[in-house]
């Protein structure tokens, strides 16, 4: 059956929007949705996904525009506060499939409300966002806890991580403030990029994990002469504070899930 002329007209307003995968790109996309009154049927991250084609929907490419993004950010801050904008950013970093659409819907809900809708813990999309934010937050907290620096012979403190979500941007401030007097690098081998502090500022670094082979075996060869000794002391300390009469493996694994063990020297 042929679609009627009427359905085609309606469907023509539906769009598949593509953006460049950046946070500012996503905010620009939100701007365009309001500007052109788009009905969005899907959002595609051009970095990651194949371009979808939908017979009834038209594709549109969003060009990241700093000013447009800033306007959306400013509007959101005024409406629901900086904290809720940060929540949306954290949800975006989760890289969960479909999160862009969820963020768009949450923003549309926020702008449609007279009052601050971010406190509506009974709203389906807000609940979903909060749930994702909780997981991302937990991962951020775990990275603050489970990063294990190894001192290299050139006095750089180096750590490898493999977080479930893309949380490095969320821990920059913490590590920069805490370890202000030592050079350090935290490298996400899953996403093949890291953050590096040179005693002044933090920059992103990409080593190309495939070429350089950043793994524990290689790092050991670059250790500072004292590294093995302090690693040994830490291991011994970890074993000595255990109270064997209170052994509780279930609780232990709940707090330190096994997937993190390979980078925790006390668990090796």
């Amino acid at each position: 059956m042929q679609p009627s002329a009427n359905t085609i007209v309606l469907a023509m307003q539906h769009r598949v929007l593509e953006y460049d995968g950046s946070w500012y790109g996503l905010l620009t996309l939100v701007f365009e949705v309001y500007e052109h009154k788009y009905q969005v049927s899907a959002i595609v991250n051009r970095l990651k996904e194949e371009i979808q084609s939908d017979f009834f929907a038209q594709n549109a490419m969003v060009t990241t525009n700093w000013q447009k993004a800033e306007r959306v950010a400013k509007g959101l801050k005024a409406k629901v506060g900086a904290g809720s904008l940060e929540e949306l950013y954290e949800a975006y970093l989760s890289e969960v499939k479909g999160v862009e659409m969820l963020i768009l819907k949450a923003i549309q809900y926020y702008f449609s409300m007279q009052v601050a809708g971010n406190k509506n813990y009974a709203h389906p999309q807000i609940i979903e966002i909060k749930k994702i934010v909780k997981s991302v937050s937990r991962e951020r907290h775990r990275m603050k806890a489970f990063v294990r620096f190894q001192r290299l012979s050139d006095d750089i403190y180096f750590a490898i991580v493999e977080p479930d979500f893309n949380v490095l941007p969320l821990i920059v401030k913490h590590f920069k403030e805490r370890y202000a007097d030592q050079r350090w690098i935290i490298y996400d081998v899953k996403r093949d990029y890291g953050i590096s502090y040179d005693l002044c500022e933090v920059n992103e670094v990409v080593f190309g994990a495939e070429n350089t082979g950043i793994d524990q075996k290689n790092i050991v060869t670059g250790w500072h002469e004292e590294e093995a000794f302090y690693g040994k002391l830490w291991n011994l300390y970890f074993k000595s504070v255990n109270i064997k009469e209170r052994k509780n493996t279930k609780l232990h694994v709940q707090h330190v899930p096994k997937r993190y063990w390979k980078y925790l020297n006390e668990k090796l």
Partner: peptide, 8 residues
């Protein structure tokens, strides 16, 4: 909490 002992 940087790690947890085996007694949790």
């Amino acid at each position: 909490c940087h790690t947890y002992t085996e007694d949790g």
